[in-house]
């Protein structure tokens, strides 16, 4: 398959960029920092040490939730537009690659570029943790690393889609930056607005309002990631309730707890949240592929 060749070439090319090394260093620092911190603070008591690790990851996720999408977008937004602006795309498409394969190959190549630092950071942290690790700690850590890598891949998919659909670097930058701003700053306004309109129109009950808001929140890949990480330490229900909390999820929202509990509907389970994240992987990529088919180079 021809996307393999494109992906390998793209990775080979991107891996020599200084960006990857900056990212790796940052990622090692973040992950290993958490691990080392755990060793320092955690005493001999296994139970207490595990709690400290959870505490670290709980706050670490606030950092990864902003750093990983941002780096994925920065590393990827120009992946196709820069080739078009510089003219390397002509060299690439003079060879027998379909345009679909170019987009898919870019996605795979850049996914490797973004996930590699995360996994390196994770391995370094694991080595630091090993001396005092319990089985549970390591499992949580592996899941956390995989979820974080998935968050990176999802945003690579979004950025490759944007880059394929855009005609210039500038358009791609505006598109990628705009999406990031929407996910980070505007999404909750959107959730509130839709909820208010729906309540006015259909007279939703309070529990229905919470369910609607939760469904909309889950559709934000960053919020989906955070709540999936929370699910590693707590029940699905608790993790979903935290999405309505203030102060980085430290104070649980009692109203939300009453509306969503005592049993969480399977419609809001981890599998559904994961599916919502994957939707953000597939849809922008598909849109980008279709637009790029029509592009004039």
């Amino acid at each position: 398959m021809s996307w393999e060749a494109v992906a390998r070439k793209d990775f080979q090319d991107a891996v020599r960029s200084r960006w990857l090394w900056v990212l790796s260093a940052l990622s090692v620092l973040v992950f290993a920092g958490a691990a080392v911190g755990r060793l320092y603070v955690g005493g001999g008591n296994q139970q207490e040490a595990a709690a400290i690790l959870r505490g670290f990851l709980f706050y670490l996720k606030q950092g990864t939730a902003i750093i990983i999408p941002l780096t994925a977008l920065v590393v990827t937004y120009a992946s196709i537009t820069r080739e078009r602006e510089s003219g390397t795309i002509k060299l690439l498409l003079s060879l027998p690659h379909s345009r679909d394969d170019v987009v898919l190959g870019k996605f795979l190549g850049r996914s490797a570029v973004v996930t590699l630092p995360v996994l390196i950071g994770f391995v370094v942290a694991l080595l630091a943790l090993l001396p005092a690790a319990s089985g549970l700690d390591i499992l949580v850590y592996v899941q956390f690393a995989l979820l974080t890598a998935l968050l990176g891949v999802v945003f690579v998919g979004i950025a490759v889609g944007v880059s394929a659909a855009a005609n210039t670097n500038q358009q791609a930058l505006v598109g990628a930056g705009g999406l990031f701003a929407i996910f980070w700053f505007l999404w909750n306004f959107f959730v509130t607005g839709v909820n208010r309109a729906a309540t006015d129109l259909f007279g939703l009950s309070t529990p229905d309002q919470f369910r609607l808001r939760l469904a909309l929140k889950i559709l934000n890949p960053i919020q989906a990631y955070k709540t999936l990480v929370d699910s590693l330490f707590m029940s699905d229900l608790e993790a979903r309730i935290r999405m309505f909390s203030m102060l980085f999820g430290m104070i649980p929202n009692q109203q939300a707890a009453r509306a969503l509990g005592p049993e969480l509907s399977p419609a809001f389970g981890d599998a559904v949240v994961l599916a919502a994240m994957l939707l953000w992987l597939v849809i922008p990529l598909a849109v980008g592929i279709v637009w790029f088919r029509e592009a004039e180079l």
Partner: peptide, 29 residues
């Protein structure tokens, strides 16, 4: 394009790849 060799106009090379890697990429492609 499988049966056509192309020297395009207004192209540029991949700055970070060596000449041999370019040719290897063409061979693989």
């Amino acid at each position: 394009r499988e049966r056509t060799g192309v020297l395009p106009e207004g192209f540029s090379t991949y700055d970070r790849l060596t000449g041999r890697e370019h040719v290897e990429f063409a061979i693989e492609s």
